[in-house]
Amino acid sequence: MRYDSVAERGRYRLCDTMGILADDLTGLHETDVSLLLRGHIKAGYKFKEDSPISEEDEHYIKDPSDLEKSHCLAIVIPCTQVENISTAYKDKIVKAIRAARRENIPGVIVLTMIDRLCTHVMESVDKVFTCSHIKDVVKMAKETFGVPEMYIFPLMNYSSQLIKDDCTDIIALLTLKKILEFTSDHIEGPEQQ
C-alpha cells in the first residue's frame, strides 16, 4: 500500500499526545512512549507524568491490532530550541526516537518556527531549502538527536498571519506527505518495498 493509496482511502490517523517536556516530573512518561508506539494505550487515556499506564488500567490494550499501533513517530520542536536544548530534554527525545527504532518505526523531527531563523522564507518556499541558517539547525538537530537529515523537516508556523499563506501551506503539506510515505513504507514492511 503506497502513500497514494493510503491517502486516497483515508486510511491514516494522526494522533497527538502530551509532549515530551524537559524535566523529569512533567511530560509523557518514558515507558508510555514505548507502549503508545506498540498500540497498548487507548485513546482517551490521561497520561501521568510520574507513572506509566498499568496493565490493569481500562485504557490498556493487552493485544493491540495493527490499526492500534503507531507507524511513524513525529517529534515537533521549535528550531530555536535545538542549539540550547537542556540535556534532560534532549535525552527524553533521543529515548523516544530509540524506542521507535526498536520497533522499526520511523521517527521524524519537525522543526517549527523557521521563519524566526530566516525571514526570507516568507518570500519564497525555495528559501527553506537554501537558507544557511535553516541548513545549520537541521545539521545541529541531526547531531543532537541522531536522526538522518532526510527525517528532519523545517516548518513555518502561522503565528501572526490573518490570511492563509501558500508558502506556509506548501511546506506543511510536503512534510505531511513525507510522513505518510514513511508510514506507508512501515506498514508495507521491508518485503513489500
Rank of each mutant, 00 (worst) to 15 (best):
A22K: 09
A22E: 12
L25W: 08
E30K: 12
D32H: 03
L35R: 14
L35A: 08
L37T: 01
G39T: 04
G39P: 10
I41H: 07
K42D: 11
G44D: 05
Y45E: 05
K46S: 11
E49M: 09
E49W: 13
S51E: 12
P52N: 10
P52A: 12
I53W: 06
E58C: 09
E58L: 11
H59A: 13
I61C: 10
D63P: 04
P64H: 10
D66C: 04
L67P: 01
L67M: 12
E68D: 14
E68C: 00
C72S: 07
I75W: 06
V76H: 06
V76A: 05
P78C: 09
I85M: 14
T87A: 11
Y89A: 14
D91V: 00
D91M: 14
K92N: 04
K92M: 08
I93M: 06
I93H: 03
V94C: 12
K95A: 15
K95L: 12
I97E: 10
A99S: 13
A100V: 03
R101Q: 15
N104P: 02
L111T: 01
M113R: 11
R116A: 09
R116T: 10
C118I: 03
T119V: 10
V125A: 13
T130K: 06
H133M: 12
H133R: 14
I134E: 00
K135Y: 03
A141R: 04
G146H: 08
G146C: 07
P148V: 04
M150K: 15
I152V: 08
F153R: 00
L155R: 03
M156W: 02
N157T: 15
